[in-house]
């Protein structure tokens, strides 16, 4: 599902043919700060995510995995290069439900309870309140955390919050799921279950899944692997 390296196009990174690409990054660089303080988080990355892919984005901490996911989610503009979403009909920014993002850190709205947090992207996408609530309940059931529905984010643990974040993504049934260390705060058993839910949901929805992780076991459960180091995409491997 990923194309071989193309030195001429993306340097030492991974290049893929655009074709029916869901997301296409072309020589994307993202730098934080300016001048001598400038720190390149992602550097000259060219890559394509095709529909139905199951990609494990691996690499050590600080290698640029999260930033690349944010770029693909349209949450950050590239400093140079371009990101296009030909398979999504344009940027997903301001289009709730197109891309589902599971953030690495706390990402629940503190003033909403768990159920309302899960329903929020549905409401933003225009669903009526009853439908949104029903789907949010279903997502919580799917993650086996229905009892958290009326809890506030500050009343649940970090691991539970991460599962709620996953439930929020599932409830919105996106075309592309981007998960940034979704199991980082979970024990191995729960983590494995969450990944299973992500995979099952992606299969059910015929969605594409990109998971940033440094957990080898999780990476092994996905069909493709992109490796990053120092902001660059160093390898793209189809493992299955």
């Amino acid at each position: 599902m990923t194309a071989p390296l193309d030195d001429a196009d993306g340097g030492p990174g991974v290049a893929t043919a655009p074709g029916q690409a869901l997301v296409h990054c072309a020589a994307v660089t993202r730098t934080y700060g300016t001048g001598r303080q400038a720190v390149p988080a992602v550097c000259q990355v060219t890559a394509t995510v095709r529909p139905g892919a199951r990609i494990a984005l691996t690499g050590p901490s600080g290698s640029g995995k999260s930033t690349l996911l944010h770029l693909m989610a349209g949450l950050e503009p590239p400093t140079s290069g371009s990101v296009r979403w030909p398979g999504l009909g344009g940027s997903p920014a301001g289009r709730p439900g197109v891309v589902g993002m599971v953030f690495q850190g706390p990402s629940l709205v503190p003033a909403l309870d768990v159920l309302e947090n899960v329903a929020l992207p549905l409401l933003l996408a225009g669903a009526n309140a009853d439908d949104a609530t029903e789907r949010a309940h279903a997502a919580l059931e799917r993650l086996a955390i229905p009892e958290l529905a009326t809890k506030l984010p500050e009343e649940i643990s970090g691991g539970q919050a991460q599962r709620v974040a996953v439930a929020r993504v599932l409830a919105s049934r996106p075309l592309l799921i981007l998960a940034d260390e979704p199991t980082g705060q979970l024990d191995s058993e729960t983590g494995a279950r969450v990944v299973s839910v992500l995979l099952e949901t992606a299969d059910e929805l015929d969605a594409t899944l990109v998971v940033a992780t440094h957990d080898q076991e999780i990476a092994d459960r996905l069909t493709d692997r992109w490796e990053m180091a120092d902001g660059r995409l160093t390898a793209a491997v189809q493992t299955w």
Binding site: A73, L75, P92, A93, G94, R95, P96, G97, V98, V99, M101, F103, S107, L108, V109, P110, A111, L120, P121, L124, A125, R168
Partner: peptide
């Protein structure tokens, strides 16, 4: 934080 999360979830 609330507004950033809401934006990240796709709020226009």
């Amino acid at each position: 934080r609330t507004f950033a999360i809401t934006t990240a979830l796709g709020a226009t």
